[in-house]
């Protein structure tokens, strides 16, 4: 067995948890009941993946760590998530677009890990890839509807693109041991290009322009607020079992 380095495990797990948290914020507030249920489903998928990865990490670390200690008792500086996962939801267009960006990133990542050298992780990745494909389909369908829907929906999806695009270069540059980063990036670019074309939108602007320090500071601030809420009750009762 050749285990994936623990930092990569944490990066994937934290990204799943943080994204799942954002999706769960929609629960009960979706634009229609079917969408409420769909977003909850994605949240359940990715939080479930985070749990499996934390459990794997903990079993390998072997120092009394648990999934809940990892999720609830680390601060924002210790979280390894890709920054875009923590960005606030914004409107439904921004939520859907973030799902497209992340699921299109996760599909090739899980596929690579599913055939990788770490069999325990591969077992998780096989199922996770199937879920990510469903998420990617759902997010693509809505991106297309928004681009090729009404003037209002087009305005909103274009605004979402300009809001989220600055986080994409760092996402695509993220190295995960045991996977071919360039290959994953190519698949992401090809998939997103196809969706943008069908949505009658301009090509997705992947470029490294902009004030990266400002983006990083914003992302950290959003993550801090998210963790403050998520961890509040658990930290109030550190000895409790729930």
């Amino acid at each position: 067995m050749s285990a994936l380095p623990s930092q990569s495990l944490l990066l994937i797990a934290d990204s799943c948890l943080v994204w799942g948290h954002r999706l769960s914020e929609w629960c009960g507030h979706g634009p229609q009941l079917e969408e409420d249920i769909a977003l909850t489903n994605t949240a359940l998928d990715v939080i479930g993946q985070a749990r499996l990865l934390y459990q794997l990490y903990s079993s390998r670390a072997g120092n009394g760590l648990t999934e809940d200690k990892l999720a609830y008792f680390r601060g924002p500086d210790a979280f390894q998530n890709v920054a875009i996962a923590a960005v606030e939801n914004g409107d439904y267009a921004q939520t859907v677009l973030r799902s497209l960006i992340l699921s299109a990133w996760f599909v090739p990542l899980w596929r690579a890990l599913a055939v990788g050298r770490d069999p325990e992780l591969a077992a998780i990745a096989v199922e996770a890839e199937k879920a990510a494909r469903v998420q990617r389909r759902h997010a693509s369908d809505w991106t297309i509807r928004f681009g090729d829907g009404t003037a209002e929906s087009r305005r909103r999806i274009e605004h979402a693109i300009s809001t989220l695009a600055p986080w994409v270069p760092a996402l695509l540059a993220t190295e995960i041991d045991g996977t071919d980063r360039a290959h994953r990036e190519n698949e992401w670019r090809a998939f997103v290009a196809e969706v943008m074309a069908e949505a009658t939108l301009a090509a997705f602007p992947v470029n490294a322009n902009g004030d990266h320090h400002a983006f990083e500071a914003n992302a950290k601030q959003a993550l801090s607020a998210l963790l403050h809420e998520m961890q509040s009750l658990a930290r109030e009762h550190p000895e409790a079992v729930w």
């Binding site: 629960c27 909850t40 939080i47 479930g48 985070a50 998520m230 009762h237």
Partner: peptide, 15 residues
């Protein structure tokens, strides 16, 4: 849901 005190409880409540 966002404040559930364990990941297991969070998943159950979401479901």
């Amino acid at each position: 849901i966002t404040r559930a005190p364990s990941l297991k409880r969070k998943e159950i409540l979401l479901a």
